[in-house]
């Protein structure tokens, strides 16, 4: 399996290769695009690193079926910045500006899958910022969650919350 994938490497590789480094790690996205990264990048991705460690570094081609070739470059970009110690507020602001809601969620899932804590925390913050001060309906739409309360139940819950937390949050509901 490993050989098969690596044979596709040359034809599919779209990232710059480093000819001097034989230890380059190949990450294969769910749609079979190969991304070659430095081992230091792989270290940032705990899932990948533990895979490498388990095989004593013999396997350097890692299939990532849950991550698309659209999302992976973002993840790699973030990891590169992270290693360089250049994760600044400005970089994060620029980074997130490029992403729509769907992409943020995809990257969140990717960060979780790859176990990159910094990226996961950053994207959690982004998601939180995007749903903060929004209505319940907005949050449902954002996550694509079906409301499984009956209208009566929901009304009752809202009433309960209104009683319990009066004065704390009614404004948000009214505004949206």
């Amino acid at each position: 399996m490993a050989e098969e994938v690596s044979s596709q490497m040359n034809s599919l590789s779209i990232s710059e290769t480093n000819p001097s480094s034989s230890a380059t790690i190949s990450l294969v996205s769910g749609d079979d695009i190969v991304f070659k990264v430095e081992p230091t990048i792989a270290k940032e991705m705990e899932t990948v690193q533990s895979f490498i460690d388990e095989t004593d570094g013999k396997i350097t081609t890692i299939p990532l079926p849950n991550i698309s070739s659209h999302d992976l470059p973002y993840v790699i970009e973030y990891c590169e910045k992270s290693i360089a110690g250049k994760i600044t507020k400005e970089f994060e602001a620029e980074f997130v500006k490029k992403l729509n809601n769907e992409e943020v969620k995809e990257l969140f899932l990717a960060a979780n899958y790859l176990n990159i804590k910094k990226l996961l925390d950053f994207l959690s913050q982004v998601i939180a910022d995007r749903i903060a001060n929004k209505s319940v309906e907005y949050v449902r739409r954002y996550f694509g969650i079906e409301n499984d309360f009956t209208p009566e139940e929901e009304a009752k819950l809202r009433e309960e919350l209104a009683w319990t937390f009066t004065g704390v949050d009614p404004d948000d509901e009214d505004e949206n």
Partner: peptide, 25 residues
Amino acid sequence: LLCHILSFLPTKTSVATTSLVSRRW
């Protein structure tokens, strides 16, 4: 993980808004 996202929100949002999203939430 959902809690992880909630943990970046003001607590009152987690309690008063997201708890109304669905039974699971």
